[in-house]
Simulated scan of single mutants.
Amino acid sequence: MFEFFTDRARHAVVQSQDEAIALGHDFIGTEHLLLGLVGTDQSTAGDVLREQGVELTRAREETVRILEAAGIAATGGQPAKDALSSLGIDVEEIQRQADNNFGPGAFQYPRPAYTPDAKKALEQTLSEAQALGKDRFGTEHILLGMLAAGEGRGLDVLAALEVDADALREAVLARVTGDAS
């Protein structure tokens, strides 16, 4: 599926993975997808989100607050590391060796998995792009997919930032169709 994404859209998805890792989460939710979109410069979704008042630092703070309120701890993948350690595998030594051989940050473990809500949003991306007559998926389609899926903490972050999801959808559609009305 990712082969159909534009370079900016792929960058946003990678950025969402990086956000999840940086926040110590061993999953990628719609909240991380939102952070990836906001953090992608010169992209339709990023531009529209910023125009709607979504700022990366504040969105990140709201993500942390919402997850903590839901009782979701930032574990940094420690349970998986502990399981491997019980088998005699030193993940930190593997990380050091990879950093030495391939450069800092070359090895991240565990790789965060997508939540069901994030998967649904990414699947909805396809429908949104097709509805607009596109065969490649841009950041705008990811955002539209997230909004159309109607579920996930990314929508909670938007609500906490006082962004109306319907107005955001209209703004994205106006941008991509050239309809400024």
Rank of each mutant, 00 (worst) to 15 (best):
H32T: 06
R65F: 09
R96S: 13
G53L: 07
G105T: 06
G71Q: 10
Q95E: 12
I89V: 15
E61F: 02
K81F: 08
S85Y: 13
P79T: 03
Y109V: 10
A74S: 07
T30N: 06
K81Q: 07
Q42M: 08
L23W: 06
A22D: 14
Q42E: 15
Q97W: 10
L23V: 10
D26H: 02
F27K: 02
N100P: 12
T63F: 03
E93P: 01
R50I: 01
Q52R: 10
Q78F: 07
N101F: 11
L35N: 00
D26G: 06
E92T: 10
L34I: 09
A69F: 11
V91F: 14
Q42L: 10
F102E: 01
S86I: 04
D99F: 04
V64Y: 04
G53W: 09
S85E: 15
K81R: 12
R111L: 15
I72N: 11
V64G: 04
G76Q: 10
A70H: 15
G77S: 01
I89C: 13
P110Y: 00
L37A: 02
A59S: 09
A45D: 10
G103L: 03
G24Q: 09
V48W: 03
A59E: 07
S43W: 02
T63P: 01
G105I: 05
Y109N: 06
G88T: 03
H25E: 04
G36R: 01
E62R: 12
F107H: 07
G53S: 00
A70E: 14
E93N: 12
R65W: 04
T75R: 08
R58I: 04
V38F: 01
G36F: 07
A98V: 05
A98F: 08
A83Q: 01
R50G: 04
A59N: 03
V38N: 00
E93I: 07
D47C: 12
L87V: 04
T40Y: 00
G24C: 09
E93H: 08
Q52L: 03
F102K: 02
K81G: 07
T57E: 15
P110Q: 09
N101K: 13
G39E: 05
L34M: 09
E68Y: 02
F27H: 13
L34W: 08
R60V: 04
T40C: 08
Y109S: 05
E51S: 14
T44R: 09
A45V: 09
I21C: 13
G105P: 03
P110F: 01
E68G: 11
I94C: 05
P79M: 07
Q108S: 03
G88I: 06
Q52K: 04
N101Y: 14
D26R: 02
L56F: 07
D41C: 10
R111M: 09
S86L: 06
H32D: 05
P79C: 05
D90T: 05
I21A: 13
G77N: 00
E61C: 00
V91H: 13
A73Y: 14
D41F: 09
I21P: 11
P110N: 01
L34E: 05
A70G: 09
L49A: 02
V64S: 02
G36D: 02
E68F: 11
D26Y: 00
Q52I: 03
A98H: 03
G71V: 12
A22Y: 14
S43C: 07
G36I: 05
